[in-house]
């Protein structure tokens, strides 16, 4: 049992889990996470915007609203810009 716990800690540290606290991860807004997911999916499949948007539960207008919302907030814009770099 002791070895199992030790192994778990080693794996967690190797994956970077020990460095990133849950608070730091949760500060990234859900809107930013969604927009970045769409951006990454479109970068992989540039010709499938319709299906990417649908898979993320968005319409074209919904995406515009999301992007305007992010753009209006300086913190979210900074997170998004860092994520797109």
């Amino acid at each position: 049992m002791k070895y199992l716990a030790l192994a778990f800690l080693v794996v967690a540290a190797a994956c970077g889990g020990a460095k990133e606290t849950p608070d730091a991860a949760s500060t990234v807004s859900a809107d930013v996470t969604l927009a970045l997911a769409i951006s990454a999916a479109l970068a992989a499949n540039p010709a499938s915007s319709d299906s990417v948007l649908a898979a993320n539960g968005l319409t074209r207008d919904g995406l515009d609203s999301l992007l305007y919302r992010i753009a209006a907030d300086s913190a979210m814009s900074a997170q998004y810009s860092a994520g797109r770099r």
């Binding site: 951006s39 479109l42 992007l67 753009a71 209006a72 814009s77 810009s81």
Partner: peptide, 13 residues
């Protein structure tokens, strides 16, 4: 157009 739209927050940043 979608790909281009995704640049909006970056330009305002």
């Amino acid at each position: 157009a979608v790909m281009r739209a995704l640049e909006l927050p970056q330009i305002l940043q």
